[in-house]
Amino acid sequence: MATQAPITHFTGTRVAIVTGGAQGIGKAIALRLAADGFDICVDDVASKIHLSKEVVAEIQQLGRKAIALPYDVTKEQEVKEMVEKTVAELGRLDVMVANAGIIQDHLNSVMEANIDEWESIWAVNVRGTVLCYKYAAIQMVKQNPGGRLIGASSICGLQGFANAGAYCMSKASVRSLTQTASLELNKHKITVNAYAPGVIETQMKRYIPKFNGRAGIRSALDRIFDQDKPGMKGMSIPEQVASLVSYLASPESHFLTGQTIAIDGGLVFN
């Protein structure tokens, strides 16, 4: 049985990378960690660099250092460079929040699966998370002592939903990877956990017509808007997810590892 990862004794300024940090949940996480005293690397795709720089400006107003990087998490060399650039600019790496992810635009069953489309989702949600965990862990082991790897799963990683197989598979993979990596990295004082949001206000609103407009789908959204079901009402906001990540990134969470924690108003029980 793995022993607990002891609380880190590092007392200097801690540094976090947040991928997909230009908007939505990623932005909320970056701002919350900055408020917690972290210096931040805000990473997102090149097309969103202007948004990333706006987040950096907000972080700097909080009195923290921050950089904006345009690296693609599906490309191994770019993830490696993202970690190296962060360490060069900010001094170290203590927390990796592998938040970048995409959701499928077209709902379809397994019988209708477009494998190219499904694999494009897996490239970001699975491959990207693996690469972020890999290169962050290498850096954390090198610098010592310890660190935090935090991944973005979903309620769709805890329970399957009809016609959303590509996304559900990808987020279940994050959960599985998080368990495996926690066992491998515990000896290095690195904890590995994931957050599993339900439906988030800024991110999911545009998908409501797609979910509710297709016959036969008993989706998460159908259940959320069933006002007769207690604990399943409405959507959460990114700041609520950021609060959970804040704890997972903190020294106080040193005894918590390998977990995927739902934050969904009781929609899915883990």
Rank of each mutant, 00 (worst) to 15 (best):
F161I: 01
F161W: 04
F161Y: 07
A162L: 10
N163F: 04
G165S: 15
G165K: 05
A166L: 05
A166M: 06
A166R: 03
C168K: 05
C168P: 05
M169K: 02
A172M: 07
A172G: 08
S173G: 12
S173Y: 14
V174A: 06
V174C: 05
V174G: 02
R175K: 12
R175T: 13
S176H: 15
S176E: 11
S176L: 13
S176C: 13
S176D: 11
L177A: 02
L177G: 03
L177F: 09
T178C: 06
T178W: 05
T178L: 07
Q179M: 12
Q179N: 09
T180A: 14
T180F: 14
A181V: 03
A181D: 02
A181N: 02
S182T: 05
E184N: 05
E184H: 08
N186G: 07
N186H: 08
N186P: 00
N186T: 12
K187R: 13
H188I: 04
H188W: 07
H188G: 05
K189N: 14
I190H: 01
I190T: 03
V192H: 04
N193T: 04
N193A: 04
N193L: 04
A194I: 05
A194N: 02
A194P: 00
Y195G: 01
G198E: 00
G198S: 07
V199K: 01
T202N: 13
Q203S: 14
Q203W: 11
M204R: 01
M204G: 03
R206T: 15
R206E: 15
Y207R: 03
I208W: 03
I208G: 01
I208F: 04
I208S: 02
I208Q: 04
P209D: 15
P209E: 13
K210G: 03
K210T: 06
K210R: 15
F211G: 01
N212D: 10
G213W: 06
G213H: 08
G213M: 10
R214Q: 15
R214G: 01
A215D: 15
G216Y: 03
G216L: 12
G216N: 13
R218N: 09
S219V: 01
S219C: 12
A220K: 00
L221E: 12
L221V: 13
L221M: 15
D222W: 03
R223Y: 03
R223F: 00
F225C: 08
F225S: 12
D226Q: 03
Q227D: 14
Q227V: 08
Q227Y: 13
D228C: 05
D228N: 11
D228Q: 08
D228W: 11
D228M: 06
K229M: 07
K229N: 09
P230H: 04
K233V: 12
K233I: 09
K233T: 13
K233N: 14
S236P: 00
S236K: 01
S236D: 04
I237D: 14
E239H: 08
E239N: 15
E239L: 10
V241S: 01
A242M: 08
S243Q: 13
S243P: 14
S243H: 10
L244V: 09
L244G: 06
V245L: 02
S246W: 10
S246F: 08
Y247E: 11
Y247P: 08
Y247L: 11
A249N: 07
A249M: 06
S250P: 15
P251R: 02
E252S: 10
E252I: 08
S253H: 05
S253C: 04
F255C: 09
